[in-house]
């Protein structure tokens, strides 16, 4: 959906659904997903329909994503960090017990 206008100054290695990805330092996790190809950003909790971020500033809660095992985090408010494990959500998350 998006393209980067110029090469980033610094990058970090993260994983998206198990696959390695280089993310620019300063990017939000949401940005990483929006750069990440054709798969829908997430499937909603109520109807299981494809959704993607709408506002990018923490108001719409459509950017929900699992980060380092914790589900339903707002991807637009979390800056990437080296080694981060990012997983797309499909519907309501299962509870980690």
């Amino acid at each position: 959906m998006l393209r980067r206008r110029a090469e980033p100054k610094a990058t970090v290695a993260v994983s998206l659904d198990g696959a390695p990805v280089r993310a620019a330092v300063g990017d939000s996790v949401a940005a990483v997903l929006l750069l990440g190809g054709d798969a829908p950003y997430r499937l909603s909790a109520v109807g299981g329909v494809p959704r993607a971020p709408f506002c990018m500033i923490g108001n719409c809660f459509d950017c929900l994503v699992e980060i380092d095992g914790v589900p339903n985090r707002q991807g637009c408010l979390v800056p990437v960090a080296a080694g981060m494990s990012i997983r797309r959500q499909r519907g309501k998350p299962e509870i980690a017990r």
Binding site: A24, A31, A52
Partner: peptide, 21 residues
């Protein structure tokens, strides 16, 4: 997916130097 607010595009441009493709 693909519908966003104008502000979202601004944020992506400012914070990540990203634009719609």
């Amino acid at each position: 997916p693909g519908v966003m607010s104008a502000g979202a595009a601004q944020t992506l441009l400012k914070a990540s130097n990203l634009v719609p493709e």
